[in-house]
Write a protein that binds this DNA or RNA. Structure first.
Lengths: 211, 211
DNA sequence: TTGTCAAACCTACACCGTAGAATTTATCGT
DNA sequence: ACGATAAATTCTACGGTGTAGGTTTGACAA
């Protein structure tokens, strides 16, 4: 163990720590993640981390924030139309989830109130509002969209294998209709499936304009 | 400590253990939950539990299964029309989530493959199929519906207080549009809000028939 | 009676999050 | 140049965790 001498800076800060934590969880999973393992990865004493981050909960928050930031990257290339900007955000969000499948549960579980999250929501709702969608539809949209995104991605990624496979085979005699439908679920986790369902959700938001 | 004598039965079984675990998590939260605390609650040695349930992961699965079973209770009163049965299931699911807000994250995070879960899905898809919905729409419906339900309920319940309050106040100068919309979010977590979004999702599923 | 077996318990181990204090270095006003 | 102060890191220690492996007990069948 290459120990550091006390007093000298190890160049630790919230950002570096969070980045290392994401790498660690991507590799070993959330179960095996812990402050001690992270410290070893950083070549540092476990308690050093606590000088930059209050505790494990705050550490998990920092990780969420770090991966969320990836979504906003390159936001200047984003389209202006509300449907297109929503689709763009949803796809960026999905790609982030596939890049960090073992970190993603943190995002879905913990409330996101970081500036980067709020900024993304603000972009969405302003675009919708300018397009003339009714206020209630706009106000509902974020919870509805990210509700779906979080739940869907959680389900699709919970398989665990990096190459997303198909669902577990189901008993044809006990559940005949579902068995009949399985051929249509070959693309479980595919972009095509994602786009189908995203279209349906967007349609649900759009049609609120008619009431 | 009223210790039991070895050899005698303590009347433990998977069901009783899971029920006690749900009560414990409802009271103290997932963070504080552990095999030892559960054992104390049951008046039993921690390791006794492992004779009925493989490990902590299996214990969490058993808890999910237990609360899921509440949803299916009284299924004979369920309607026949696909939209109504879907609404009925969604409401039952929501009520269960509000009854066990601290257990619910387990449901959303872990893949549900228990017979009770599959039976509910089978009811849904058969009703949809008999109503003449296109096969792809039917095949997509469960993932889409429960994706939304899980994500939405996760978000709504993550506040933590038993009486669901309002969202945290947001900075009006940094996020002007969102600030304008906040009055429309007074019913955060209410049945009315839930019904609005559920309607939109159902509409999204229904309109797939037209393509 | 005796043998078998399942259910419960006991012991022990490696690991965890973190409170609190000690240690070293950098910084800055004088 | 110097002493005080502050900040970053490490050290030590405590109470908790999940669970592997072995031991005890009682019930029941032969």
């Amino acid at each position: 163990m290459a120990r550091r001498t006390q007093g000298t800076s190890a160049g630790l800060d919230r950002e570096r720590i969070a980045a290392a934590a994401v790498v660690l969880v991507d590799r070993d999973g959330l179960e095996r993640f812990g402050v001690r393992r992270l410290a070893e990865e950083l070549g540092v004493d476990p308690m050093s981390i606590y000088h930059h981050i209050k505790g494990k909960a705050a550490l998990l928050d920092a990780m969420s924030e770090a991966v969320l930031a990836e979504v906003a990257a390159g936001v200047d290339d984003a389209p202006r139309d509300w449907e297109e900007i929503t689709r763009w955000t949803a796809h960026r969000y999905r790609e982030m989830a596939y890049r960090h499948p073992r970190v993603f549960p943190l995002l879905a579980t913990r409330a996101q109130t970081s500036p980067v999250a709020l900024a993304a929501l603000e972009r969405l709702v302003t675009a919708m509002r300018e397009a003339g969608l009714p206020d209630q539809a706009v106000a509902d949209a974020p919870l509805m969209l990210f509700g779906f995104l979080n739940g869907y991605l959680l389900a699709v990624l919970s398989g665990g294998s990096d190459v997303v496979g198909d669902m577990p085979a189901i008993d044809a005699t006990a559940y005949p209709t579902m068995a009949t439908l399985t051929p249509l679920q070959v693309g479980f986790g595919s972009v095509a499936e994602f786009d189908r369902m995203l279209d349906a959700v967007l349609g649900g938001i759009r049609n609120r304009a008619d009431r």
